[in-house]
Design a protein around this nucleic acid. Structure first.
Lengths: 341, 341
DNA sequence: TTGAAAGCGCTAACAT
DNA sequence: ATGTTAGCGCTTTCAA
């Protein structure tokens, strides 16, 4: 059977209170006793039961993360950013994926609370009333990454998608492109999906170049990118540049162009978004908008842990509230090119 | 303050035992009382504290996963496979990454046990004595994915790396290639790294084609693939085909070849391993060895949960021990081609 | 400086 | 069918 603090106490000939004290350095303990206790602990390989400790202390050192999809690097890299900092600070991570199902999300937020997580990091593509309420009733710190939520108490970590898309589009305009298509994300993606489109549209409208016919919508996949590019090629207006809402779509579009013997970037410029690994590896390598995935995760967890510890210490962490906007960056590679005006 | 079972009992005018009974359907409860209890629970949004429950029951419904790197799809897709099944079966996942650091691994296995995980899934690239001991002393079910460990009680989920590499190489041989290079993984990768090389070597030796000079070693990265391909190109013996230990390296090699105006597959065939997303997206698309990442995760968790529940029910699960070898599959795409003999 | 005892929130044996 | 009570393993008053 597992050895408990009682066993240690007995073997060391002290009370379990004393054992607890040496375990946590919470109160002075005479050196002789401490040594004795430590020795028994050593010998028995005793480690305190974290559940019991958590129950007593109301502190589990566990943080919950809710994320749409673990197999997508766009998310898993954020988790990686969260994880390394978490680990370094002696917390553990409980992770659940949701497949973008908001009910799963709500359900697991509750489960996490039941299990005593001390804070929550939430990635979601949309917030409905039920989720809103769940979050409101969650009595521990929460941080959201990527998407918005009108709750004062929830800081958001994000990038400026509108600005980033605007800059990417402007960059294409500066390259003399006049017919700039966009393969945008699904309308159901209420955050990045819409914002990136908005930035694109804004830049084009400012330059009197916007044409709805050049906008295609699809899911964030290689296949959809490919397919939307097919539509674009079959359309009445052939673009000279295509801005895609993410890199995977962009690569789909690129492959489609190549398959149709359209050379990139000579005849067609293609720009992605995210700067995931494939962007620099592709041939031609893909111009994109770099966003700091790992940093997003790390900023979120840094903030969260501070909120947790501030709360423990009874200090207020008002300075932590409010959104945090991380920097994006245009990365120019081989897939985009200046054309003659 | 959080509402507890005592509060519910008081408000419903019953004992907390009764509340516990309706909560768990563990014993018959008169309908009137049950209704009353349920009503109070409903009104108060009461949810039982999982920590307390776990402490009493010795059951947390948490499973621990230890993995080298969360941002690498090769691993995160395995996790995704684990996660969805876990979630569907009302367990939660505690996940830690290790950056291949075996001390981190050992440390977190202990932490997981402290926190009451009921089982462990471990992905590691190598097992040393200390880890071996830690595993041996871990008194809950463990499954390993990918790598071996000579502990009877730990089932392994894997693919047959040797056979897969052998087949891939044999396929290239069948395409009339005589000078087949390999860009292999690091020597420190004692499992897949060595096994894939072994399969390659075996096929070549059987055909009297093996030449050490055509073997390069590198880390599993795009950059290393690129660099090793450079070495190959500068070498005294130009290969007509290159087998790479993973897709990312293969893409590095491919890009290198392309950058050097060597056309693939016309002048050079390239074959990867893993069949990650990039393989089908690349241009030319990459022939590879498909391995079922998600299935690996799922098989592991299915087995683990059965072990956990068998143990709970006191039934023995001997039939679960022993390794499980999942099927790989050659996927032929554009990057490999038959040449004249 | 130490120990005894209460309590964290729950379950389960035991008693009725 | 229900309530009482004793744990689960720990921390922390409270007394000594």
């Amino acid at each position: 059977m597992k050895v408990t603090i009682n066993e240690i106490a007995k073997q060391a000939g002290v009370s379990k209170a004393t054992v607890s004290r040496v375990l946590n350095d919470s109160k002075p303990v005479k050196d002789i006793l401490r040594k004795r206790v430590l020795k028994v602990i050593e010998e028995t390989n005793f480690r305190p039961n974290a559940l019991a400790r958590g129950l007593s202390l109301k502190k589990t050192s566990v943080i919950g993360v809710i994320i749409p999809d673990l197999s997508n690097p766009v998310f898993s890299r954020i988790i990686a950013g969260i994880e390394s900092y978490t680990r370094a600070h002696d917390y553990s991570l409980m992770i659940t994926a949701t497949d973008f199902d908001i009910d799963v999300e709500i359900n697991h937020i509750k489960i996490f609370r039941d299990k005593g997580v001390e804070g929550l990091i939430l990635l979601t593509d949309h917030v409905n009333k039920a989720l809103y309420e769940t979050l409101e009733n969650f009595d521990k710190p929460i941080i959201m990454i990527g998407s918005d939520c009108d709750l004062e108490k929830i800081p958001i970590i994000k990038i400026d998608n509108i600005k980033a898309a605007y800059e990417a589009t402007q960059y294409l305009i500066n390259l003399n492109h006049k017919r700039i298509a966009m393969i945008r994300g699904p309308l159901t993606d209420r955050f990045s999906g819409n914002l990136r489109f908005e930035g694109y549209k804004k830049a084009l409208i400012e330059n009197n170049l916007y044409d709805e016919i050049l906008v295609k919508e699809g899911k964030y996949s290689f296949e959809h990118g490919y397919q939307m590019m097919t539509h674009l090629l079959a359309g009445s207006k052939m673009p000279t540049a295509v801005f895609c809402a993410n890199d995977v779509m962009a690569v789909g579009a690129l492959k489609c162009a190549l398959d149709n013997e359209i050379s990139v970037p000579e005849e067609l410029s293609i720009m992605g978004f995210d700067d995931v690994a494939i962007a620099k590896m592709y041939n031609p390598s893909l111009s994109s908008v770099h966003q700091p995935f790992e940093a997003k995760g790390e900023r979120a967890i840094v903030k969260l842990i501070r909120m947790i510890e501030d709360e423990e210490n009874g200090v207020n962490s008002n300075d932590l509230f409010g959104d945090e906007v991380l920097e994006h960056q245009l990365v120019i590679r081989q897939s985009t090119k200046r054309i003659k005006s």
